[in-house]
Design a protein around this nucleic acid. Structure first.
Lengths: 227, 227
DNA sequence: GTATATTCTGTCAACCAGTGGCATTTTATG
DNA sequence: CATAAAATGCCACTGGTTGACAGAATATAC
């Protein structure tokens, strides 16, 4: 089968068996081409037929890789959540939980593959500035589920049922909030020293935005609540 | 046109013009019959054709009343959120905000029409115990949007941009959390004195569950967070 | 290298949610 | 009663999603 040559965004996991490499390649080709199309003509106006036509796979195959049309748009997000949860699962808990989650988040950001931030940026722009809200909703649900899984894993690690404990749920809210805030500032080009950066500024800038958001938590919390 | 006779669940807004009464009646008939069908054979297995057949309305008309198949399942929920937000909008703010929101929530529960709690219970059971998660997701998104609107309205009332203020967002989290917790305990038949109640126990019991959840907020917050 | 088992893929058909357009009916208004 | 406005029905059509099965590609054993 031809028509899909290795390119810059092809994952070069030379150690994986051929079949696995191929699977990664089709998956990546579908996700990349989908973002192209969504950016060109919008999410709603793009049909799956066009997508699978351009990638040269059958529609049936598409649904073997992604559960829905929305899923392919938030693939990079899903990759990140997966990496984050793995990171939290594997890392030793020490110090304050919020700091732990913050470190784990940054570490998992660092661990994403070389092209991840470019793809993520592209996807975020489409999700945020699309005409309808289906993509945004889908992304939000994915975050919510990831957050739940996160506090579940963390709870398991320190022997608490995180789903029942309000403190844990709030912890999850903080982390998710900081992430969302940081990521949206990154995409919008806001934040410290953003003027000096051309474009959105790569992964390091994203990480700085997330850190800024985390840093802002205590000061916003200490505001008086006397209304 | 015949086939739709007034029954127990027909809203008796005798003061409304005929056209409006009819509209309410079809809307209610669709929602009720949908719950019947979903309970009988499950959400996924029920087709809209069956629904509109039983109600004796065209499919086109269905979509003039509800935006999607999921929407008709959470209609009672949506009614409540609407009432709640209206209540918050109309009520004078005084005292602590959390207490204000709590009172408004209970008041709007009280204001729902006579059959609301029965319908709501039915709907919650379907949403919670359905095979797939589409309904649950849909309901969760609706809550999220309602929560955002809520703090938006509250922010407007006291001249603060609630969307930007962390305290407000947390307030929203508390209220939504208490509501969810109370409602789910109600449906599950948990809570103080639940043994003595046959069935789920009507709206007064739901309100008691919600109050219990609100009461639990300070004590869970004061737990030590020294992990 | 060949044979065989396993996994992936394409083709085809079907289902069903959701939409646009337009004619028809129903309600409101004077 | 006449006319305007609004609600409904009908119909065809798009497009996402799934199941079944056959064929192609890859892995494994010899």
């Amino acid at each position: 089968m031809c028509g899909m040559e290795p390119n810059a965004s092809t994952p070069d996991n030379r150690r994986l068996p051929l079949r696995e490499r191929k699977k990664l390649r089709t998956r990546r080709a579908l996700a990349d081409t989908a973002l192209e199309l969504f950016a060109e003509k919008g999410f709603a106006a793009t049909t799956l037929d066009e997508l699978v036509d351009r990638v040269d796979v059958s529609k049936r195959t598409f649904f073997r890789y992604f559960a829905s049309k929305e899923d392919v748009a938030i693939a990079t997000e899903a990759e990140f959540w997966e990496a984050y949860i793995d990171e939290v699962r594997d890392r030793d808990v020490q110090g304050r939980l919020l700091a732990f989650l913050r470190e784990a988040l940054l570490a998992s950001l660092r661990s994403m593959d070389a092209e991840w931030d470019r793809r993520f940026f592209q996807a975020r722009r489409i999700v945020a500035y699309a005409g309808s809200s289906v993509l945004y909703d889908h992304s939000e649900l994915a975050s919510l589920r990831a957050q739940r899984q996160l506090i579940g894993v963390l709870g398991d690690k320190i022997g608490i049922d995180g789903r029942e404990d309000v403190r844990f749920r709030m912890l999850g809210e903080f982390v998710l909030g900081a992430w969302r805030c940081g990521a949206s500032n990154w995409v919008a080009g806001r934040g410290a020293g953003a003027q000096g950066i051309r474009g959105h500024g790569g992964r390091d800038t994203l990480m700085r935005r997330v850190e800024e958001a985390f840093d802002a938590i205590p000061e916003t919390l200490s505001l008086t609540a006397d209304e």
